[in-house]
Amino acid sequence: MNWLRPASQLLSLLSFVGTIVPAVLYVYGLLNLDQTKSWTLVATVVWFAATPCWMDRPAEKANASKEMT
């Protein structure tokens, strides 16, 4: 499960960017408002699913707890 932490960090990064990108695309007229709301919600769900897996968890401690389980 050593891949879990970097994978969740990558997802967090993507969702972090994904939270603001729909608004930027809306400003440039590339998304309509409903699409903007939907993509922002998707990014929000991914952020809250992925980020708790690594934030506030020191790497060694997280790995240790994984190994114990």
């Binding site: 972090f16 939270t19 603001i20 608004a23 930027v24 400003v27 408002l33 922002t40 929000t44």
Partner: peptide, 14 residues
Amino acid sequence: APWMLLVFLAFGMI
């Protein structure tokens, strides 16, 4: 917290 900051920014842009 980091996500909220971006949503606030999105409020303004939209």
